[in-house]
Write a protein that binds this DNA or RNA. Sequence first.
DNA 1: TTGTAGGCGTTATCAG
DNA 2: CTGATAACGCCTACAA
Lengths: 355, 355
Amino acid sequence: MPVRRSAPTSLDVARLAGVSQSTVSYVLTGSRPISAATRRRVEDAIEKLGYHPNSGARALRSRRSGVIGLMVPEAYGNDAVLMRFVGAIAREAQRFGYDILLVTAQEGARGIHRVVRTGVCEALILMELGRHDERVAAVIEAGLPFVLIGKPVGFPNGSVVDLDFERLGRMVVDRAADEGCERLLLFGEPGHRRHRNDVSRFLLGIEEQAEGTGLEVVLDGGGLPDVPARARDLARGGRRTAVFGLSGVTEVLFATAASGALADPELLTIALTDEDLAAISPLLARIPRIDPRRVEISELAVRELVRLLREDGASPRVTLVEPEWVEQEQEQEQRAEQEQPVEQTPAEHTSTPTS
Amino acid sequence: MPVRRSAPTSLDVARLAGVSQSTVSYVLTGSRPISAATRRRVEDAIEKLGYHPNSGARALRSRRSGVIGLMVPEAYGNDAVLMRFVGAIAREAQRFGYDILLVTAQEGARGIHRVVRTGVCEALILMELGRHDERVAAVIEAGLPFVLIGKPVGFPNGSVVDLDFERLGRMVVDRAADEGCERLLLFGEPGHRRHRNDVSRFLLGIEEQAEGTGLEVVLDGGGLPDVPARARDLARGGRRTAVFGLSGVTEVLFATAASGALADPELLTIALTDEDLAAISPLLARIPRIDPRRVEISELAVRELVRLLREDGASPRVTLVEPEWVEQEQEQEQRAEQEQPVEQTPAEHTSTPTS
DNA sequence: TTGTAGGCGTTATCAG
DNA sequence: CTGATAACGCCTACAA
């Protein structure tokens, strides 16, 4: 059995194909026309040797490492849902020939400088930024292409992909009103979390739309396990109440199920989650659900980054992805008869920041 | 404002410090004694310029990229818990100066060859391997240091870190017996999933220990939402029944709470999870819980890999981490009075494979 | 259409 | 204790 000391180089390929080393390189990069015959010989040699170009050398020479840095938020514990993003990002990056390198949020702006200066990453994706995040300044200063997942309030200085939280707020209010609710109970204390970009945009949508419909909005839902009791109090006297929150859906559904309040006709619980609730319990099968479209957001983020990388001088874009209603069959059919077809199809819209 | 065309190199540092370029390198790698004065000047210059060594060049020359590949399983959807591992691995790797590059499982053995041949990764962590996984052969052939998270049955040809699933099985049986249960209901169809390494080791522990205690083990718990009803049937007639499963804890707890069976004194539900159940609902506060110690496993995996990387000719090790009981206060106190202190302290034990 | 050659920034082997 | 110097493997401008 032959002992392979180290990986074959482009020179090995060249020798086997009977061409010069640069020809191999040109075949690989495609930056120069190559005759079909030569290309064929080179490709065969590559295949035969199992050749892969050395990424260090390539990066050193071309300043392109083929690696995208992904800065993941600190709060792994609270947000196991993160893996949805990370997985989808890794797969999509793969499709375009990029690898994903994790940068922990705990490294902060220094981490960004590090991966940029060392040249490990040629582009960055940043997640869950705070309102005034030092990392945004860092990545702009670094001068790399980058995409933010999570839109800041106002116009950012770069590309953004995010759920349209303002629209989400309006969707929730509309649904509650349509279903004859007089109140909307928001759990997860959004009133105290306006400092978060997503929360403040969501509340903006909620408040704007509530004004139009006359729906009463209750911001302090109390602790998550107490939500069902709180909701029942509110619904007392036939005032139908909708319940919604940006986080902690599982906990609230749990508490609601345990309290028996899921069956209460005066309560309308709306869930924001990408989980198939019916699979957790048939009791949840009829709960109207909004999908936060994490996979789509991830894929769009990668594609936007690839655009910035490939198109020379491409300008940044803001892409907001529309939340998507997911209804169970029975309910869906019922509703289809009563309503005229509104724009049910989820969509994205894109804009260019003016700042 | 000065325009920085590109990152400073070690030559820039050398000039500023008034030394040769190689001296800078020696200061950085520490592979040669340097006088305190020189080192000082060099370090100052590095600081002043914000210099970071170019990783491409470094990798090209030294064949060490400072990057560890992490092959994450395909099933992001089902296992949001994955992020616990990934986050902890990234942080621990960071501590030792390594970055984590994601390799999707969908790339399979080719993916391993790719990252090895290109030299992007100098070591690998593989998660959730199947019984006869092509990736193990690939990584062994590649000749890189590697660690598996998830122990195969029998002796692997490399380092492994995993939960001690056999012990977990015995712990569950012991607890059920201690609490006066006559039956143990295992949900998640473990009987049909013996092809999984963890499941088969778990069942081994269950069966061995059950033989000693005379506990009756029921393997087919039915679909997850049906578990509470099934358990109640079994518990009928005063035959106390314990309920446990390797996955789907949330779903089962949900269904149990909704059915009101959580209060049934004839049922003992034991959870395998790293979530704080009391935070989800006070109803869950008294459920005995076993922590799967994912963070510890992740950290140990990284440290084992670092050992393989640093210690020359280090031989592989198998490390099994002991599952840890986590009880709520009240119950903990009650139990403390009734029992003599058994080995409650979680521990790891390590062995060297003889294969 | 193809070949030649210089250099990307480091590490590490020579000397001194 | 420190300096010069030769690769590492690839890309690409320049020649042919």
